[in-house]
């Protein structure tokens, strides 16, 4: 936990009140965002995202599995977040478990939409291989390498980048299998399907300190928060998920005001992230050299 003196606390609070934060940012400014993709060769897609000193990695692994009998036309996605003790000693031996569950649940809520699949950032029906028989199971794993606040936003950005980086092998289904048998499948090593990530939302956490709220809070600033609201917004400006995180109660009008503030911020953040991801993708392709050409 952050140990701050009374003077430091006052400095942070006062700065936020005057719209000039300790690192020179304004209330609605993000820290510099750095994105690298294709950082984990073992995964189908991966990305590392840094917001200032916050450093997270997301990886996407695809495995063939059986669809849920209740939803035969859809693949499955599981999102897990791991908080490594290398990020903070408090995460050691199950200490990060509570935070991990909280982050995983929040990401699932924001990315997977309603139970019927409406409004999902990841289109589950595109993971279908053969209805009711074979589908892709996507395992999305987030890892917190270094933590300096705003983990949820960074993880969501990393997942978006990792999904853009993901190539799902093309699958040929053997014909002629009887309906009761599990059909034979052929996984191609050469042909990959790209994933459409234009619908994947970003998450913007607004942290309320005093009467004002800020985006992309550092852990020092988070320690001064009274409450926080994470809003997930897609490129159409629609809200795809909302979670109030801890702290004191809020008036309904304040929450609605925060939602509109988040939508406003997202109009700048989404194009910024998209261009960063494209740049990272171009760089990772160039870095692979000429011998590997997907």
């Amino acid at each position: 936990m952050v140990g701050l003196s009374a003077g430091e606390k006052n400095f942070i609070r006062g700065g936020i009140e005057q719209d000039l934060r300790a690192d020179g940012r304004q209330r609605q400014d993000f820290r510099p965002i750095l994105i690298e993709t294709g950082v984990i060769p073992q995964a189908n897609g991966s990305a590392r995202v840094r917001f200032g000193a916050t450093d997270v990695i997301a990886s996407v692994k695809a495995e063939l599995g059986k669809p849920n009998p209740l939803q035969p036309g859809r693949g499955k996605v599981a999102i897990y977040v791991d908080c490594s003790p290398t990020a903070a000693p408090a995460f050691e031996r199950g200490g990060g478990e509570e935070l991990s569950t909280e982050l995983s649940a929040a990401l699932q809520k924001c990315l997977l939409g309603g139970k019927s699949g409406a409004g999902a950032g990841i289109d589950l029906s595109s993971l279908m291989v053969l209805e009711g028989k074979v589908c892709w199971d996507l395992y999305i794993d987030g890892l917190v390498v270094s933590s300096d606040g705003n983990l949820l936003d960074a993880l969501a950005a990393a997942i978006k980048a990792a999904l853009t980086n993901t190539g799902i092998p093309k699958v040929d289904v053997g014909v002629g299998a009887s309906p009761d048998e599990q059909p034979e499948v052929n996984i191609s090593d050469e042909e990959f399907l790209q994933f459409d990530t234009s619908a994947v939302p970003v998450i913007i956490t607004l942290t309320k300190v005093g009467r004002e709220y800020i985006v992309d809070a550092t852990s020092d600033e988070e320690s001064q928060m009274s409450s926080a609201v994470s809003v997930s917004v897609n490129s159409h400006g629609k809200v795809c998920g909302l979670i109030k995180r801890g702290g004191a109660g809020l008036d309904a009008s304040v929450i609605l005001d925060m939602v509109s503030a988040a939508r406003h911020v997202s109009q700048k953040l989404i194009p910024l992230l998209d261009s960063e991801i494209d740049a990272a993708e171009a760089a990772s392709l160039a870095g692979q050299g000429s011998d590997v050409d997907p």
Binding site: G113, K115, G119, L242, I243, K244, G249, A252
Partner: peptide, 30 residues
Amino acid sequence: EDCQDGSLTVAFMPSRREITQLTLTGEWST
């Protein structure tokens, strides 16, 4: 709930008129 497109859950203190928890899933307009 099994066929919902989205859901909103609110925990509220009626006398203070304060929301202590609010979660939302699915795609929503303001």
